[in-house]
Amino acid sequence: MNKKNRLLLFLWLCAVALLLVGSILAPSGGHEETIREAMRDAVLHESNKINLPGIGPVNPGLISAVTVTAVLLAAALLIRIFVIPRFRYVPGKLQLLLEQGVSLFDNLAKTNSPWRNGFLGAYLFGAGCYIFFGTLFELLGVQAITTHGTSFTLPAPLSDVNAAIMLGVLSYFVICSGAVAGNGFHGIGSALKEISLLISMSFRLFGALLSGLLVTELVYYYVTLSFVLPVVVAVLFTLLHALIQSYVLTMLTALFYGEMSEPHERKPRAKRRKSAAPVQSN
């Protein structure tokens, strides 16, 4: 290790030590709510609501969702204007990343559903990006002011049960649309048989992201748990959640969509009668 690196390491250790001492010695603002209330509010969003102009008080998850959408669309617009026109046949790093992202969901749609996968690929891309970046959003710790005038850290959009229900139900309707497109009205029957998907997809998302939120909430509630542990709990768990949940929902949607949209050959009625006749005679 050379002299410059040693100096940097020393400065970094000093900064960490100062921050540690400062955070211990600094007067705490105190908790405005108990851990029980904080946990309950993380699940139900009963007390900490944020005022959305024109709509009224809404759950913080909705504000997070709108923020994520705005950021993602702005980034997509910048990429569309400045990056995509400079695409080359031999891709650079950013181009490769974008192509991998698009082809990941496109291939997921094509491999799981060889029929009518154009719309499915686009939907999976949107849903995958929403879950992935929405989950990572909680790492930023963006603050918002609640209706009570207190500061509140915006959670992941899908830790709000309404967002999870929306995405689960929408995915189920996408699957139903595949069933109808593949088999007409006969497909509706097979789609209705999988009605439990509505609940399982919605609450799988909600439960997974909520568990991460609760653990993070618990860890940050106590000062003594707020050192080193959040690196594992908050960052790594959030990254894993982002990857796993976006993969699970998109993969399940693609899988069921492919299964439902598969065209089934139906026997003509005359043949069915003929084939049924010997059975009756026996």
Binding site: L73, A76, G126
Partner: peptide, 28 residues
């Protein structure tokens, strides 16, 4: 709020499709 989330997601999915998914796929 579910409808608001749906509205928000519709805008996001549509925007991502128009701005990213389709151009990148066309290029590929």
């Amino acid at each position: 709020q579910i409808l608001l989330h749906l509205f928000n997601f519709a805008i996001l999915a549509g925007g991502l499709y128009i701005l990213l998914y389709r151009p990148v796929k066309n290029f590929m």
